[in-house]
Each structure stands twice: as C-alpha cells, then as structure tokens.
Nucleic acid binder design. Structure first.
Length: 438
RNA sequence: GCGGAUGUAGCUCAGGGGUAGAGCGCCUGACUGUGGCUCAGGAAGUCGCGGGUUCGAGACCCGUCAUCCGCCCCA
C-alpha cells in the first residue's frame, strides 16, 4: 500500500482539529485587535538572503531552502526559502513599505512557519505562530502592552496559572562582561545559563566549565544573578547594564494594573536563542510543558539590516500548537466546539423522495439551519444511525405519506420523540427546539 | 545530530519459533416507516518495509523507515 502519512513533522488537521485551532486563533485575534494591532499576512516563501544570517548558526541550518527551478536546477543551489518565523518577514515588510505604513505600526500575524527541526512533543516542522509586534517606538509602554495583550489572551483561553519571564539582553551582556567572560564566550555562556530552570545551578556550572568559562568567572556570574533575583545592587555593571535594569523597572511599572502584572517574573537566567534581540526579552511558561508557550523581545536593529534606516521594534510570539497541546491535555476546550456537522439530517424512505428531500432541505437552510441531506435511500434505521453517530440532533423523515400531504416528520433523537409539521413550518419548529435544548 | 522504547484488524492492544487473536467499531439478520439495548451471524491484517538464520519467523539477527520519550535547540 502506498504511504499515506503526511511528510515527517507535518500534520493533517481533521474537522475537530480545525475547530479547536480556529477557536484559539479567534480568541487571540480578538485580544490583539483590542490593543489596536492590525492584521498582516506575508508570503510563505521569501528570498533566501532575506532569511540568512538573522537567526544565528543553528537557525540558519533549520531553514527550509528551495532549490532553483528550470535552468538553474542543475546548479543545485537554493534561491528561495520557506519563512522561518514571522518577525524577519515583518522587518522586511516595514523596510519595503515604510512610506505607506504609520510611524507607529502595530500589527499581528497568525500564519504557519517552517523549520527543518526534529519533531518532538509540541514541536513540528510546520507550525503556526501568533505574532504581535509594534514598530516605531522605544518606550517601555510597548513591552508592557505586549505582555498585557499576551496575558489577556492566555486568561481568555482559560489559563489561570502562567508566568511571563522577563530579562534584558544588555543586562546579560553587561553581567557577563562584569564577570570577566570574554565576548567570544558570551554565546556559549548564555546557552548554558538559559538552561538553569532545567538542569539547575550545578548543571549550569558544569556546562560553563565545559565551554571554557573560568571557575571564578562562573562564581561571579552566579553572584550577580543571585543579587538580581534578590533585587539587590549588582556590582560591576557598566552603564548599559544599569540602563537595562532601569528599563526593566519601567516595563514593570507600565504593566501595573494589567493581567501581566501578577505574572511577570524577573529571570536573570533567561537568554532566548534568536540572535536579533537587542533589549528586553520575554517568555511565557506553564508548569506542565517543558518548553515555552511563546516568547519575544525587542529587536531595534533588524529593520535596519534591510533598509539602513533604524526603526525600533518589539514583539511577542505565541506558539499555537504549544497552546493546543496543553489545552488538549487539560480538556480546556468549550463544549460548544464538539463537532456536529448539521442541525438536522433529511432522510427518505425511497429514491423517489430524494428530490423532495432536496427541496425541504433548501427550505430549512433558508430558515437558518445547517442541513445535511442523506444521499441514498438506505434502510431508514441505517440513516438514523448515521445521524446519531455524527451527533446530529434532528432527523427530518420524508415518506410517501408526508410527501403527499406536504408534511415532514421531525424526529428528536435525544428525546426519542417525533412530530409531524408542514414542510414550510418545520424549519422554524426545529430552530425553536434547538433553542430550548440550549 | 545522539541515546532509549515501540510498530500485529478501522481503533486500543494480546501473542516471544509450529493453523493470526481479543475488546471496541463496522456489515447482515431477528426488526420489510425509525437509532441507542439484547441476541445470532459476517467481513476485515503479505504482523511497518528489506534482507538473513531456520525444515518452519509475527516472534530470533542485521539493516531501514515511522512514531513516542529523553538530549540538543526551539513556538
């Protein structure tokens, strides 16, 4: 038999999956719109050079490249790529269309991205990101609003317990410098540090040593982190480090009174992988998922990489499938999402009734019902069983008697009752019955 | 990219060298204008794929692919 699974790391979404995904997307959109963000969509495919060099070495490796076509095919070179995230395409859009866009541009974008990563729990090769970004301002109001919007979306989806970890790239740099770690080791040190919540302080200490960080530097680094955690003065920070700390204070002040306030948690060990971040960085976590539900930060230099014109920017990205994994496991979806393809199914006793079924279905649709016509004159029991199996609450029965009189018998499957109406009145009767059962 | 586990009927799984199994689902009938309950019957699997060992392989060996769990990284 031919293989029928989708390609590795890719998934089919069956009707129930689509309804769940759309439910989450609708909630997130509603919240983002409430903060004045506007929708944006960009192509699945970007020019390869647009993406290269924006995500760090590891990121570059994971980009899905598209080989040249036609005459260029033989060269084996790639010139296009599937988008790896929504942030770099946004920066390209802002650089390209800056004259048409407002000075302060707030946009959201919910679209799939592709990464040639190894699939794992909550990790796929095609997945949706729900991004919100604001460009054109360096104010801490931006960070605070992004955190507030994300927190609102989480709360509205039904998450009560979650944290938004907060840190600052320049604070990290300053801290590493103050600890005597040379710049060439900064990347390695940040990777080790970022794992602290997973492998513990001792694990980080070991990994730092493996990566060539001197023991006294590591000691100094841990001391600085400890001081930051305790909100105590940190020795040896340079000016940018001090400014970064002040920036974090300002963000927290602005977030007061929002849903984010209670969830914000300063975490000096948070580093985040993407190389384009320049300021505050954020990450949303819940207890029962090892990775993050989403993350973001400030990237003031990214637009400049395309246009030469520096436009400050800051954004946040929620991972749709991460949210879905947790919501599925916890059973957080509203009962109204249960899949019922129709409100009523029209069934006939013989093929001569089918044209009448079509006509009656049309009347019912005009009345506002979702109507499925059973297409074959199967045994009536089989037809009713199909309707019951699909969760369709009503079956409209058309036999010779009903057709002769212009009637239709409406059977309520749950109540095990049935009533005959005139065909023109049946739709209204079913609507009424649907309302009563809630 | 590395380590571990698992691939048997539509689904969940049992069988660990000698005739391919169960539960659920599906189909038919009891019940020729009515679903769920009950009863009787039925269909369905080259046991992930390729090689090897053996008189004989679903089982043992090698390879491969897929899935899951860790690591790495990330949404």
């Amino acid at each position: 038999m031919a293989r029928t699974e989708p390609a590795r790391g890719m998934r089919d979404f069956l009707p129930e999956d689509v309804r769940r995904r759309e439910h989450v997307i609708v909630v997130i959109k509603r919240v983002y719109e409430r903060y004045g963000f506007e929708p944006l969509e960009t192509p699945a495919v970007e020019n390869l050079e647009t993406l290269l060099g924006k995500y760090g070495d590891e990121g570059n490796q994971l980009i899905y490249k598209i080989l040249k076509r036609g005459e260029g095919e033989a060269s084996g070179e790639a010139d296009l790529a599937l988008r790896y995230d929504l942030t770099v395409p946004l920066a390209r859009v802002v650089a390209h269309h800056h004259a048409k866009l407002p000075r302060l541009f707030k946009r959201y974008q919910i679209q799939p991205v592709w990464r040639a990563d190894r699939p794992a729990r909550g990790r796929f090769r095609e997945f949706y990101q729900c991004d919100v970004d604001a460009l054109g301002s360096t104010s801490p109001v931006i960070e605070a609003e992004l955190c507030a919007a994300v927190a609102d979306a989480m709360v509205e989806l039904g998450f009560a317990e979650f944290s938004i970890r907060l840190n600052h790239r320049q604070l990290l740099t300053s801290m590493l410098n103050a600890s005597g770690i040379t710049e060439t080791l900064h990347g390695a040190a940040l990777v080790a540090l970022d794992k602290e919540d997973k492998i513990g302080v001792d694990g980080v200490r070991q990994e730092l040593a493996q990566r060539g960080v001197l023991p006294e530097s590591a000691r100094s680094l841990f001391a600085a982190i400890g001081a930051l955690r305790d909100r105590a003065p940190v020795s040896g920070l340079d000016e940018t480090g001090v400014a970064a700390l002040a920036n974090l204070d300002a963000i927290e002040t602005m977030a007061k009174g929002t849903q984010a306030e209670a969830r914000l948690r300063r975490d000096p060990s948070l580093a985040r992988g993407l190389s384009y971040y320049t300021g505050a960085i954020m990450e949303v976590n819940v207890a029962d998922l090892a990775g993050s539900l989403g993350g973001g930060g400030r990237y003031d230099n990214l637009v400049g990489m395309f246009s030469g014109q520096q436009i400050p920017a800051c954004g946040f990205s929620l991972g749709l499938e991460r949210i879905l994994v947790v919501m599925s496991e916890r059973g957080m979806f509203p009962a109204s999402l249960a899949t019922t393809p129709a409100d009523v199914m029209v069934a006939v006793f013989d093929a001569a009734g089918l044209p009448h079924a079509m006509r009656v279905a049309g009347q019912m649709r005009e009345a506002g019902l979702r109507v499925l016509v059973y297409p074959d004159a199967d045994k009536i029991g089989k037809q009713i069983k199909y309707a019951d199996g699909r969760g369709i609450p009503f079956v409209a029965l058309l036999g010779a008697d009903e057709i002769a009189k212009g009637d239709v018998t409406v059977k309520n499957l749950a109540a095990q009752s049935q009533q005959t109406h005139s065909q023109s009145a049946a739709g209204a009767a079913i609507l009424e019955a649907l309302k009563n059962r809630g």
